[in-house]
Nucleic acid binder design. Sequence first.
DNA 1: TGCGGATATTATGAAATCGCAAAGTCGCAG
DNA 2: CTGCGACTTTGCGATTTCATAATATCCGCA
Lengths: 99, 99
Amino acid sequence: MDSHPLYEIKADLFKGLAHPFRVRILELVCAADEVPVSEILDDTGLKPPHLSQHLAVLRRYGLVTSERRGSQVFCRAADPSVAGLLTAARAVLASVAAK
Amino acid sequence: MDSHPLYEIKADLFKGLAHPFRVRILELVCAADEVPVSEILDDTGLKPPHLSQHLAVLRRYGLVTSERRGSQVFCRAADPSVAGLLTAARAVLASVAAK
DNA sequence: TGCGGATATTATGAAATCGCAAAGTCGCAG
DNA sequence: CTGCGACTTTGCGATTTCATAATATCCGCA
């Protein structure tokens, strides 16, 4: 799906994060190491279908994984490096804001 | 311009990178500490108006700065942390690909 | 088996982006 | 002060996201 030119793969990764709700969701997921969808729903105030779409995007780009246990679905960051990416973004924002 | 909710600011940063050409351009700019637009033009094969548009996006989000000296324009990364963001992205891609 | 809660998928119109082309600006050589 | 090269800005059709609503699926329980 994302496998042809190298820069496209990288751009797709950033596209996965290019939306306020997805950044928010990803930060919630990275903060705890596992979080049920219902909790994200409460924390963000999003409606189920809307959240589900954004989660689908995050999953498609391989940023989060989810697993169903019983009636709920639990999400987690696909890898610790994802949290590192958010941290790096914070550093950039800090430097840009400081200018 | 990007100053209201916190997550929007961060999402905008990622939006700035959510395009293959912009990733490519930013990597060229981070590799050397200063690069003339004409060189980016040669390396990417983009036409001037097209490149200029992408550079405008990168500048708007505060990722690169540029300065005109004589007839040419030189670009540089706005801050070293920008290179760090690209590095963090590489780490995520490596882990996603390895899965 | 049938119900209800928790998520996911599909459909659709509105809004933002992309990519190309025509025209404009800034500096310097002549 | 006129022409030319290096970029930038503007305009617009074509494609891609977003957001909301309607419909569907999965699971544990009565």
